[in-house]
Simulated scan of single mutants.
Amino acid sequence: MHSITLRFLASQSTPLVANRIPGGTVLRWVDEAGLACASAWAGGASVTAFVSGASFLQPIQSGDLVEVEARLVHTGNSSMHLAVGVRSGSIQGGELQPVTQCVAVYVAVDEQGRPRAVDTWTPETPGDIALAQRVKAHIEAARAAQ
């Protein structure tokens, strides 16, 4: 599986700030979707290696419908690079609006926690190729800035 979409209601049991879901909670959802996508592709355990580029465009209100999509865009020997996007909106309908987008890298690991090989994924559509190029450029820029 090279993509996964999680849909759920922003729970009122989540600690709120001014009736808004905190950014840290949104980032947890990003990591959960990314981990699910990466682990499915790897056919086993994966760990988060890198998350970058999350800028929040609008808040998520308690009770909003939330959609978190994680898409595999590139594989290395043991790594999986993903584009993750979050959208939200009213449960009563209407178009979901972008909340944030980011890049995440996960590494497949064996039972001892050591990196292990993953199958190669090759983008095929022009949209997938362009997305893979943007993600790769983002990761390279972030690593160069360290």
Rank of each mutant, 00 (worst) to 15 (best):
M1G: 15
L6T: 04
L6V: 02
L6H: 14
L9Q: 04
A10L: 12
Q12C: 11
S13A: 14
P15Q: 03
L16I: 05
V17I: 13
A18T: 10
A18S: 14
N19E: 14
R20K: 14
R20W: 12
I21T: 09
P22E: 03
G24Q: 09
T25M: 13
V26R: 04
V26C: 09
L27C: 12
L27R: 10
L27Y: 11
W29V: 09
W29D: 08
W29A: 06
W29M: 07
L35V: 09
A36I: 12
A38V: 11
A38E: 07
S39A: 15
G43C: 12
G43N: 09
G44Y: 14
S46V: 15
V47P: 03
T48R: 12
T48S: 15
T48G: 11
A49I: 12
A54Q: 13
S55G: 13
F56K: 12
L57G: 12
Q58V: 07
Q58I: 05
Q58K: 15
P59Q: 07
I60H: 06
S62R: 08
G63E: 06
D64L: 09
D64V: 04
D64P: 04
L65K: 08
L65W: 07
V66A: 08
V66F: 05
V68A: 09
V73H: 05
N77W: 11
N77T: 15
N77L: 07
N77H: 13
S78C: 06
S79W: 03
M80G: 07
H81K: 13
H81G: 05
H81W: 10
L82T: 11
L82H: 04
V84H: 01
V84C: 07
V84D: 02
G85I: 05
V86N: 03
R87K: 15
S88G: 10
S88T: 10
G89E: 05
S90V: 11
S90C: 14
I91N: 04
I91D: 01
Q92K: 13
G93V: 08
G94A: 11
L96S: 08
Q97L: 15
Q97I: 10
P98T: 08
T100N: 04
A104K: 07
V105P: 14
V105S: 06
Y106N: 06
V107L: 04
V107C: 04
D110T: 07
D110M: 05
Q112I: 00
Q112T: 05
Q112W: 01
G113Q: 06
G113D: 06
R116I: 00
A117F: 02
V118S: 05
V118G: 03
T120W: 00
W121V: 03
W121Q: 02
W121K: 02
P123V: 03
E124C: 01
T125K: 01
T125I: 01
P126K: 00
P126H: 01
P126L: 01
D128L: 01
D128Y: 00
I129E: 02
I129T: 04
I129W: 00
A130Y: 00
A130F: 02
A130I: 01
Q133V: 08
R134V: 05
R134A: 09
V135R: 01
A137W: 00
I139R: 00
E140V: 13
A141E: 02
A141P: 06
A144W: 01
A144D: 06
A145I: 00
